[in-house]
Write a protein that binds this DNA or RNA. Structure first.
Lengths: 139, 139
DNA sequence: CTCCAATTTGAAAATGATTATCGTTCTCGA
DNA sequence: TCGAGAACGATAATCATTTTCAAATTGGAG
């Protein structure tokens, strides 16, 4: 029913090579082109959605477009995994810690809001970009 | 230098009437049309950006477009204000509490990531949509 | 191995939010 | 009242994503 094609293999291979690193559809297209196995954008989007639907990839929607990445965490234990998005360089970083368990529980019990940690993005400025800012500030 | 026009007044008035409620540009356009003071979309975007730049409005970028709202919190004390976004109904809700101070401090000191609470959206399902879901699940 | 129906592909058009363009209109101080 | 600067709004442009549809590919049956 679901055919295996060289395009579908190329897409998945690309993610397996980079583990948790997040990619946009355009970046993936560029990467595939670079590696000689060019795939049309429409096809890329189709595979990304299929992989996300099957749970093999995580899709995170942002104002700058969607990011896709492999993630070992399942829906259940994903409360230990946070996504940090740098508004300066645009990159998404993964962070593991249990710091927010209490807060999420508080939100759910007191405010009846059930968090989806996989769609929650902490926005801010990452260490690298923070350092650059300091440099710029000097006369 | 900055002229006062009936359009700029209408836009700001719309937000003042709804306090912290978030609006998209399209919703604002519809609201203004309804109230008889129709304003072109281009002009609406111009005023929204101007108001956001001057700090009178907060602009939150999401995958579904930008939301704008009045918010009493300044950049400094905004760590006490959270934005919850329901992935079901799309609405953004404000929540005041100091629960995350520690986490933000941890992120900054241990992981050198400086959070911007005004751009951070906690995604999930709000109480109302949660209730509806329960109804749907029944045979 | 060949055939063929079902599936996949990709170029191009459609979509939706936002921004840029550019004459026209408005505002307000001289 | 005048006029320069500012604001307006219809329209075109942009950008990520989705849809369309004819052509190419896949894999099971014969």
């Amino acid at each position: 029913m679901a055919y295996t094609t060289k395009q579908s293999q190329a897409v998945l291979r690309c993610f397996e090579q980079r583990r948790e690193e997040s990619l946009t559809a355009a970046e993936l297209a560029a990467e595939l082109r670079r590696s000689g196995s060019s795939v049309g954008l429409a096809t890329i989007y189709r595979h990304l959605d299929k992989l996300a639907a099957s749970g093999q990839l995580h899709k995170v929607n942002t104002a700058e477009g969607a990011f896709y990445h492999l993630c070992a965490h399942t829906e259940d234990n994903h409360r230990d995994c946070f996504l940090l998005k740098c508004s300066r360089c645009g990159r998404i970083r993964h962070l593991d810690c249990t710091h927010l368990h209490d807060f999420y529980q508080h939100l759910e019990q007191e405010h009846h809001f059930r968090i989806d940690p996989r769609q929650t993005l902490f926005a801010g400025v990452c260490d690298l970009c923070n350092g650059e800012e300091a440099t710029h500030g000097t006369t």
